[in-house]
Computed example of a mutant assay.
Amino acid sequence: MKETALTGEPDGARAGKTRGEPQPDHVVATPGHDSPFRFERQRNELRFRVLRLALRTWITPQYVRLRLEGMDLAGFDSRGADDHIRLFFPSTEIGPSEVDGFRNSPSRDITPLSWDAEEGWLDVELTIHPGAGVASPWAADAPIGSLVGQGGPRGSKVMIGRPEAWFLAGDETAVPAIRRFLADAGADATGMVLVETEDAQHEIPLAAPKGVTVEYVHRDGVAAGLALSARLDRITAAERLAGTVIGFVAAESSVVGPARALLLDRWALRAEAVTARGYWKRGVARYDEAH
């Protein structure tokens, strides 16, 4: 097991190999069967696992990928790009058999990025907020070999079929879901991706099909969500992507209104094809506990 400072895209299993429930401030539904794509809800077997930190990879100065390992991952699956699992961070050192100790520890919801259940590894990515909460300090500083509890995903929203175009937007907390959507899009996909980051130094590399444009929106010191909201507000009806479009926007909760205005009003997408979610809210520590 080792720690590295390399950057880049997920390796090994697909972003999701053998790859939740709606949260506050969101719109999410299921297209009808006459659409080229639809979503189906899938319930997953609930199991609690204890995993070991095996690798830490810094993508930017405040964004890190963690590899968690453990044979408990046998049977793990996550078929929805926007799925969430929960990680439990014990404040004191406890043994792998002390399951109740892990269950009672502070926890955080995140999107699983990639895994190989047979080989027993799971990759996740987290944004580091120095001095905030329990997940950030653990993700940044926990010694290699540290133990963490893991549960979920409780359910998956599985895409059946494919849209003709993809509109994906979010801040750093949405990047794992955006990565997974892009991995599923296919080499011939068309679309647009917007990612809000602090500045150019904090841009997170994304692998996208040739027909999908990726644009970074910089906060440059303004409050989270404002830069992305302003960019969404500037997109006109004439810029609507052609064909049947999936719209996914997830970031600080203030982006939900501008996302709805763009996707549901100006672009007139069906509500069933749109997800607009507040993954977190400024000043509210346990708003959604996601990312």
Results as ranks from 00 to 15, higher is better:
Ala132Ser: 12
Thr18Arg: 12
Leu66Asp: 08
Ser78Ile: 01
Ala207Leu: 10
Thr92Asp: 06
Thr275Ser: 14
Glu272Ile: 00
Ala189Val: 00
Arg79Ser: 13
Glu203Phe: 01
Leu53Phe: 02
Pro96Glu: 03
Phe88Gly: 03
Glu21Arg: 13
Glu196Cys: 10
Thr60Phe: 10
Ala177Arg: 01
Gln150Phe: 10
His33Lys: 14
Ala177Asp: 04
Ala273Gln: 13
Phe89Asn: 09
Gly211Ser: 08
Val50Pro: 04
Ser146Leu: 06
Leu168Glu: 07
Gly278Lys: 06
Glu45Thr: 12
Ala223Asp: 14
Trp166Cys: 00
Val50Thr: 13
Ala237Ser: 14
Ala227Cys: 06
Lys2Asp: 12
Gly191Glu: 02
Leu228Glu: 00
Asp265Met: 02
Gln42Glu: 14
Ala74Tyr: 04
Leu51Arg: 02
Asp77Gly: 02
Thr213Ala: 13
Leu87Phe: 14
Leu66Ser: 02
Gly170Met: 04
Val99Ile: 15
Ile110Gln: 01
Val256Phe: 12
Met71Trp: 04
Ala135Gln: 03
Leu206Asp: 03
Ile246Trp: 05
Ala242Glu: 13
Ile85Gly: 07
Ala74Phe: 08
Gly257Asn: 10
Ala169Ser: 13
Gly161Leu: 04
Lys17His: 10
Asp100Asn: 13
Arg41Met: 09
Ala250His: 04
Ala139Asp: 01
Phe76Tyr: 15
Ala250Phe: 04
Ile160Glu: 11
Ile160Val: 15
Pro130Lys: 06
Ala142Asn: 05
Arg219Ala: 10
Ala187Trp: 03
Ser78Phe: 15
Leu6Thr: 13
Arg286Pro: 00
Glu203Thr: 12
Arg282Ile: 09
Asp184Ser: 12
Glu40Val: 15
Ala273Phe: 03
Gly149Leu: 02
Asp25Ile: 05
Val195Leu: 08
Gly32Lys: 10
Gly186Gln: 06
Ala290Val: 15
Ala29Ser: 15
Phe76Met: 07
Arg38Cys: 07
Arg65Glu: 04
Arg282Pro: 02
Ala165Lys: 01
Val175Gly: 02
Glu289Arg: 15
Asp188Ala: 14
Val193Asp: 07
Lys17Ser: 11
Ala140Ile: 00
Gly186Thr: 08
Pro24Phe: 03
Ala268Arg: 10
His26Glu: 14
Asp83Val: 06
Ala142Pro: 08
Gly75Ile: 08
Ser156Asp: 01
Pro176Asn: 09
Phe89Leu: 13
Glu198Pro: 06
Thr111Ser: 11
Ala81Gln: 11
Leu122Thr: 03
Ala208Cys: 06
Arg108Thr: 01
Arg103Pro: 02
Leu126Met: 12
Arg41Asn: 07
Leu46Asp: 13
Val255Ile: 15
Pro137Cys: 03
Leu182Ser: 05
Arg79Met: 09
Arg14Leu: 09
Leu73Glu: 03
Glu215Pro: 00
Ala276Thr: 15
Phe76Cys: 02
Gly211Ala: 06
Asp34Asn: 10
Ala81Pro: 15
Asp184Leu: 14
Pro137Leu: 02
Arg103Gly: 00
Gly95Lys: 11
Pro143Trp: 12
Gly152Met: 03
His129Cys: 07
Glu9Trp: 13
Ala224Met: 04
Arg67Tyr: 01
Ala185Arg: 01
Val99Arg: 12
Val99Asp: 03
Asp184Met: 12
Val175Arg: 07
Leu147Gly: 08
Asp265Gly: 09
Arg154Asn: 07
Glu203Asn: 09
Glu215Leu: 05
Ser156Lys: 01
Arg286His: 14
Ile204Thr: 03
Thr244Cys: 05
Arg282Gly: 10
